[in-house]
């Protein structure tokens, strides 16, 4: 089965909140020095899901990432995990493009890649937490879509997709090819092996420009954006914590119950 996985590079989403900084004026996040950006964790899980399918059915995995040339490092990471090919698509106006233009560019790139049975995206990118691009790609390509997948298998020439819901799961079948967005329930992505990293580091990552994929530039960048960011800010904390300190932890624990009773919480 030939699979295309869309992967995005984002600032490390698990940095301690104290290291999270904004530039209010430019409405941008200040990348924390010394903490390199990472592959969106859901996309890493999408790569993992693709690899499981490849382990079972064979085929080729192509990884697409839209960003700057620097994002080739995450394509390399996917190759090190076991993907076969990585492609970076660059667009000068990438940062200012909205989800619709990003999805448009990725759709064009997917068309250029050509043969595929499945397109995988993450359920959402953990920077802007939208969860749009995968769905819009499906709409653009006219393909069936299943979101929030935990597992994918093949049965009777169709895809069988297990979708996570809050209190259980659903099982869908869709014809091939299809778009599936992947949720964290897939589980831990595999670590790249030593030889995986070595072979990935020797592979070339082709860089496609917007022209290479025959994208109409009037549909990308800030001028094509369907909405505008008016403000980005760090919310104020509303709570002030009263730390209960006593000679011993036991005394503090007893005191806590009394405090909670006084506060009307129990």
């Amino acid at each position: 089965m030939d699979i295309i996985v869309c992967v995005k590079q984002i600032p490390d989403p698990e940095i301690p909140p104290s290291k999270f900084k904004l530039d209010i004026e430019s409405k941008k996040v200040v990348p924390p020095e010394g903490i390199p950006p990472v592959m969106n964790p859901y996309d890493e899980q999408a790569v993992e899901l693709a690899l499981r399918l490849k382990d079972k059915y064979g085929g080729k995995i192509t990884v697409l990432t839209l960003g700057s040339e620097a994002t080739s490092s995450i394509a390399k990471h996917a190759l090190a995990m076991g993907a076969d090919e990585g492609i970076v698509i660059t667009n000068k106006a990438f940062e200012d493009s909205d989800s619709f233009s990003k999805a448009y560019i990725l759709s064009q790139a997917i068309k250029k890649v050509g043969d595929y049975d499945l397109v995988l995206c993450g359920r959402q990118a953990a920077d802007w937490d939208e969860g749009l691009v995968g769905s819009i790609i499906a709409e653009n390509l006219g393909l069936p879509l299943v979101t929030l997948a935990e597992a994918v298998d093949v049965a009777n020439g169709k895809l069988k997709v297990k979708r996570v819901i809050l209190d259980g799961y659903q099982v869908f079948t869709v014809p091939i090819p299809a778009v599936v967005t992947v949720s964290n329930e897939v589980g831990r992505p595999r670590l790249p092996s030593g030889w995986g990293i070595i072979s990935a580091s020797q592979k070339q990552i082709p860089v496609w420009s917007v022209d290479d994929i025959e994208a109409d530039s009037s549909k990308t960048g800030a001028s094509a954006a369907r909405r505008k960011l008016v403000k980005l800010f760090i919310p104020e904390r509303e709570r002030k914590c009263e730390i209960i300190e006593r000679e011993t932890t036991a005394e503090a624990s007893i005191e806590l119950v009394d405090t909670l009773i006084k506060a009307g919480a129990i």
Binding site: P17, F20, L22, V29, W128, A225, R226, R227, K228, L229, V230, K231, L232, F233, I234, P235
Partner: peptide
């Protein structure tokens, strides 16, 4: 970590 305010154009 942050809040964003959007308007549609």
């Amino acid at each position: 970590n942050a809040m964003a305010v959007w308007v549609s154009v």
